[in-house]
Design a protein around this nucleic acid. Structure first.
Lengths: 289, 289
DNA sequence: TATAATTGATAAAAAATATTTATAGGTGAG
DNA sequence: CTCACCTATAAATATTTTTTATCAATTATA
């Protein structure tokens, strides 16, 4: 059994057209016909229902079942090349979400340098959500990650490096009374991180939970810009403390009984990954922050 | 890329010998050599370390990594045939652990008959542990299952049909005082189910927890035999209430504060399974007990 | 309604890939 | 040193996949 046949079948079930599928793979149309025929012979079952004519063929029940397995098989197979390529290059492709990276990397920099890992790491800077997808696709080997919940994906494994809190912050120039309540912020302008970050979702949940409707005047994916705007008192914000450690010109607003989810700072990787000594050492360097 | 090459590679890494692997697949020895060569060329990496001589070749780091993926791929592929075969036959292979089956099937029998499902079900009678393995291997489509914990396997899905308790039971002929304590049973002979059932593990945990060492005189995998022996006062036992519903000649011993795990009675199947209408109906019949 | 255009199936030929046969070379045990 | 055993390689063969060429069926459209 050839994996190509699975690939043809997968695409065929998506495109619902033999000739288009053939075109997609740059092969002739009978190639697809014969590939399907091979599968149907191999399993001795009809897999696709050739409809009267229109460009709408459909999978049989057995075809649907096969497709599920094929998806898994081809996905796994696509991970192989990505994995082996990086092993060959002795490089580790590492996902780096900006906020966490700025907080953590200075702490481990000397160690990374000492063990000559700085040039072993191929950095991939992106938001936590995108990095998670890339990790699962095998585009990166491991990633730093910030999240309000611990990943439950059975393919992934992680180490929690730190647990931070979300904070409401404002310019140090502002004065706020003690025992602040959320309702005191009703006239404030909010500047928050946009949908690339987990912050937006947390903020929305927060809004729902406390039934408030803050005035969001600007969203950005650049947290440095956000902090600068807050420093200059263009608005107040909602962000993990990770981002404001060692940042001057910013104060944290204290509330009683504010219930916010924790912000887990993790190192995450696929369970499947064979842990080379480099890989393990790298993780341990980050663990021992 | 041919799946055969993956199969050869998998076996080679297990057998650590080219010629034995060839023999295992009934092909000539160069077939294996060339298969490996194809893989090494495809991925442009050395995959196995040909040792000086002895029957001990070893995988390189890249080879180990490949093997992990290959295992997954071949396992998934082996599920395909099993799945499609049963679909073809329009039969549903169902795992039936005896205790649960005897309890449940009488309750659904008329319904199964009414919808003509009795001859659609291919019964596979075995212990819960074995059935779980068979389910994962695709040997059966779904299974009744008794367990003290809910399965966390990401490939499996289940519906809890009932939650029962474990009981300590004795012949009705016996008289026990009220407010029994475990220490009162110190001179009793125990007859319990053997390692094929979850009972043994639960019983061991129980022993550890309460730091008692009961006198086990006989173990069996046949719960009907066990019940008979208890009825005839050959010993007392430890078993889920599922087994003793509607059984005469047996009493349940009551203890204060005995903390035992629940016994979940479930219907379990692979997430991957495409749920045919027969499949769904079957589940719903059992769900509506 | 006739005609053109598009789609999938099939047969036969060609191309690509996998396997075998035959053999060579290396290694360790005795 | 020789034998037994293992893996690698070349060349021949077998098998599998793909292409080319063509047909029949169906839809769009003139």
């Amino acid at each position: 059994m050839n994996l190509n046949d699975y690939g043809y079948f997968q695409k065929l079930s998506e495109m619902k057209s033999f000739s288009e599928t053939a075109h997609h793979f740059n092969v002739s149309q009978p190639t697809i016909t014969y590939a399907l025929k091979r599968l149907e012979t191999e399993y001795d079952t009809k897999l696709v229902e050739r409809k009267s004519y229109a460009n709408s063929l459909s999978l049989t029940y057995a075809g649907e079942q096969l497709l599920k397995h094929v998806n898994k098989i081809l996905h796994e197979d696509s991970l192989v090349k990505a994995d082996l390529n990086r092993i060959k290059k002795k490089k580790i492709k590492m996902g780096l979400p900006p906020i966490i990276t700025n907080y953590l990397v200075p702490k481990v920099f000397d160690n990374l340098k000492k063990f000559d890992y700085l040039n072993r790491i191929v950095p991939v800077v992106d938001g936590s959500k995108e990095l998670l997808t890339k990790l699962k696709n095998g585009d990166i080997d491991l990633s730093l990650l910030g999240s309000t919940s611990l990943p439950e994906d059975p393919e992934l494994e992680y180490k929690v490096l730190d647990i931070h809190q979300f904070k409401i912050i404002a310019s140090s120039n502002r004065k706020f009374k003690n025992n602040l309540k959320l309702s005191d912020l009703i006239d404030e302008d909010f500047i928050i991180l946009d949908e690339k970050s987990v912050h937006q979702q947390v903020f929305n949940d927060f809004i729902d939970k406390y039934n408030v409707s803050p005035n969001i005047i600007f969203q950005t994916s650049d947290y440095k810009l956000l902090l600068k705007l807050v420093q200059e008192n263009k608005g107040i914000s909602f962000i993990t403390e990770t981002a404001i450690r060692d940042t001057s010109g910013i104060q944290e607003l204290k509330f009683d009984n504010l219930d916010l989810p924790p912000f887990y700072i993790m190192m995450i990787y696929r369970k499947n990954t064979v842990k080379s000594s480099i890989f393990q050492k790298l993780i341990s360097i980050f663990e021992n922050v």
